[in-house]
């Protein structure tokens, strides 16, 4: 039974490894499909395409009987049928890792691996994916833009709250630097320009100006939020 709603594809030709992984992931509530070759994986992907259900994560062994797993990783990375790809290999060299990542793997797992740690990583990755990776999520660009803009408004409200209290000089400088860039990208040009000016004045005059800077910035962010 798929309790998590997440689908995992395992491409591994060593039966003991695939059975162990499959059984453990199923126990954790994942739905698991196993392929023992690139060809078998392609057939499963074709079936998924028909059913319009994506794999949330694929674990691909690099050494497979009918070819190199990197080729499959490339295919998965350029398709929309698998969101996250892990490469698994007995070759733990930096070169093997670089090749797997260049082929489109998000993570490289060297064999032998710690099963408990791998399951923890998979659970975390499937849950945290939206924060780290900005790629195909079934979300349109307009929807993503709206979500980011809404998140940024919340962030500005948090900054207003933060600026009400004294903060370290370095933290204030860093916050101004961040606002200077991000406010411009989100269309709050006046905040970006103000943050730039305040940052320069703060550099020139030092921590004695910090309280005034916080007050001015706090007020301007409130005004900008009320106008937009």
């Amino acid at each position: 039974m798929c309790k998590t709603g997440k689908h995992i594809l395992i491409v591994e030709d060593t039966k003991t490894v695939s059975m162990l992984l499959s059984a453990t992931l199923q126990r954790e509530g994942f739905r698991v499909d196993v392929a023992d070759s690139i060809e078998a994986a392609r057939q499963l992907l074709a079936r998924k395409e028909k059913s319009q259900i994506k794999y949330d994560l694929a674990l691909v062994d690099i050494s497979l009987p009918d070819g190199n797993g990197s080729d499959l990783l490339e295919e998965l990375a350029t398709s929309t049928w698998c969101n996250i790809r892990y490469a698994v290999s007995a070759d733990s060299s930096r070169r093997a890792e670089r090749q797997a990542l260049a082929a489109g793997a998000d993570k490289f797992i060297a064999k032998p691996f710690d099963l408990k740690e791998l399951i923890r990583r998979i659970s975390e990755e499937v849950g945290l994916r939206k924060i780290v990776r900005h790629s195909e999520q079934g979300e349109s660009w307009a929807e993503e833009k709206a979500r980011l803009a809404s998140g940024y408004r919340d962030h500005l409200l948090f900054v207003v709250h933060e600026l009400k209290n004294p903060m370290q000089f370095k933290a204030l400088k860093s916050r101004l630097h961040q606002l200077r860039g991000s406010a411009m990208l989100y269309g709050f040009r006046q905040i970006s320009v103000l943050a730039s000016e305040l940052s320069e004045r703060l550099t020139e005059q030092g921590p004695s100006l910090a309280e005034d800077v916080r007050a001015v910035l706090c007020q301007e962010i409130r005004i900008a939020l009320s106008q937009k």
């Binding site: 833009k145 980011l148 998140g151 860093s174 961040q178 860039g181 991000s182 990208l185 989100y186």
Partner: peptide, 17 residues
């Protein structure tokens, strides 16, 4: 690589578009 996830999120979207 940026310490501000709001900046990198929007820049990433613009670059993907």
């Amino acid at each position: 690589m940026d310490d501000d996830p709001h900046y990198s999120g929007m820049l990433a979207l613009q670059l993907r578009m």
